[in-house]
Design a protein around this nucleic acid. Sequence first.
DNA 1: CCTCTTCCCGAAAGCGCTTTCGGTAACTTG
DNA 2: CAAGTTACCGAAAGCGCTTTCGGGAAGAGG
Lengths: 341, 341
Amino acid sequence: MGTIYDLAKKTGFSITTVSKALNNYKDVSEKTRAKILQAAAEMDYLPNAHAQSLSTKRSWAIGVMFSEANEVGMKHPFFNGIIESFRHATEEHGYDLIFASRNLRNRDMSYLEHFKHRAVDGIVVICSDRMDEQVQELMQSDIPFVVVDMDSANCSVVYSDNTEGARMAVNYLYELGHRAIAHIAGDSSIDAGAARVKGYELAMHALDLPIQPGYLVNAGFFSVEEGKQAMEQLLQLSSPPTAVFVAGDQMAIGAIEAVHEHGLRVPEDISVIGYDDIEMIKYITPKLTTIRQDTDEIGEAAAELLIEQMTAKERRTERRTERRVIPVRLIERASCAPVKK
Amino acid sequence: MGTIYDLAKKTGFSITTVSKALNNYKDVSEKTRAKILQAAAEMDYLPNAHAQSLSTKRSWAIGVMFSEANEVGMKHPFFNGIIESFRHATEEHGYDLIFASRNLRNRDMSYLEHFKHRAVDGIVVICSDRMDEQVQELMQSDIPFVVVDMDSANCSVVYSDNTEGARMAVNYLYELGHRAIAHIAGDSSIDAGAARVKGYELAMHALDLPIQPGYLVNAGFFSVEEGKQAMEQLLQLSSPPTAVFVAGDQMAIGAIEAVHEHGLRVPEDISVIGYDDIEMIKYITPKLTTIRQDTDEIGEAAAELLIEQMTAKERRTERRTERRVIPVRLIERASCAPVKK
DNA sequence: CCTCTTCCCGAAAGCGCTTTCGGTAACTTG
DNA sequence: CAAGTTACCGAAAGCGCTTTCGGGAAGAGG
């Protein structure tokens, strides 16, 4: 590999000139630049990123931070789609992603601290819980960052249009003739959960449909098991709903399971519509009708906002906090049907 | 934040002493160490990782490399499980993971080059294709690395016991009374694909079962769609199998779809057993019986091998290449049944 | 022919940290 | 009390790179 010194020795120029040639400074002649580049190629020279960062104060690295609550980390079927798209988008600009541990030579530290230690240029946070400590800490700092999947006035955020998505779901069910529409909701401490509840309520109200007692059930944190339990509650009701809008696909899977276990069929006896459009629901029976969140869009938007902030910081412009709400789409599959007469 | 200089000024000691105090050198008195640590805490001092790496030649970072072929990257339902477990295991030792782009200031480069540039301490490769250029390149280098999901004599590898898993699948089907057992295989350029074919053949032979013409179909690269097409081929046969061992869960999902579209039922008319045990198959109908690969184990083993290599290198011991084969397990669900008379 | 630009190049300082090598003061030991 | 240890601390070099600033050579202009 070798260093810039070796290159200098080999070509006979000073390290200054070598560095300039490598970095496209204009005050080095074409001839010598060519020589240097040539030599660099011959000896497989690669600049040392640490040395570069040290002297430029720019690391070309972005820290990725999953919220504590999400133990699943990169296994999460929705979040990993976002990260993948984010990765693509930032890669084009030359950034690397770094997943930090919270462990520095066996000393415990916050993610933020670790990222400062690593001197990342920016941070992307995948977090739904606005009370998350790590995020709070971030807000105090002056590192560029963007958070995905929650709303906040104090930082750049991107999330999808949950309220609108919920309305679309309810309206769709309504058009199929359903009037007894329940909602299996995510916890309200999660922005997305709260927003979808709001959308549900708004839509019901706009359609002049009362929300019957017991029709709005909080199923917690979007797991299959919780969805199943919630549906069981609904099924116990004296007049169960004919359709239910479930705030997440995983919960919807559980809900369908519950329906089946009660000897009923989806969608013949009860229609179910989910939220997210994760990969697997195309393969369950029945294929789940759902509201698709555009993970590609979300990841790209997050990348855009973050890069904007990072370059702004370099230019010492003030930090702009921007909110980006990504539209959602109804994906019709086979889990909803017209209401039985 | 501040640097070590600020700390020195604040405490009145030299930067040498400060550095030593921070790094637990024994030639600094307890009293001054305490003072320095105290001051460090007060000013939220954090060492700069780049500076440290520059002078110690150790970056505490591990590069993650997905093979080219796998466009899905971290969305892959099997690989992301491995990475997640790998991350946990390495985190405990203080390592961070870095996902590199192949783009360095708009110059294209190989992953290896990029990782050299970043001066990672080691690399984990998720790759099934032994002919992958990037992996070949790695073998020539002297960076510690471990590759997951393929076999090779020239480097440390970890993968699960594919041949044995295939035998388990076939034997299980046999015990259910099946004799007409087909195999939907992954491409042989993939180690896992080849090994499972071998296990299938071995098991069939051991059971004295001939492999009927057309019963071994190469379905390519483990996608749902390819699995579906393969199953359709099998269904065209004059005497179709009563059971099929599919080399991957995603392909199995496709296979089941094909069976259903032909108006047949799984497992009543035809039994299907998959491979991998990815998350979603618990939720399809019927729940898929499969051979589980222990992603947790695999990730941990990979971490262990890599860390071993990295510390060995530090000690200047020679590189040991080790092979770790992780056992698999049959998970009985609902997609296999005794053969019809 | 002399001055003023323009074009190239290099010396040197600096980024924040580690580590070797000495050196001083205090403490033993015979 | 002299000589030998031990305990602490610091000067300085070095890791590999960037960037400012100044200076020499060559070309332009009068």
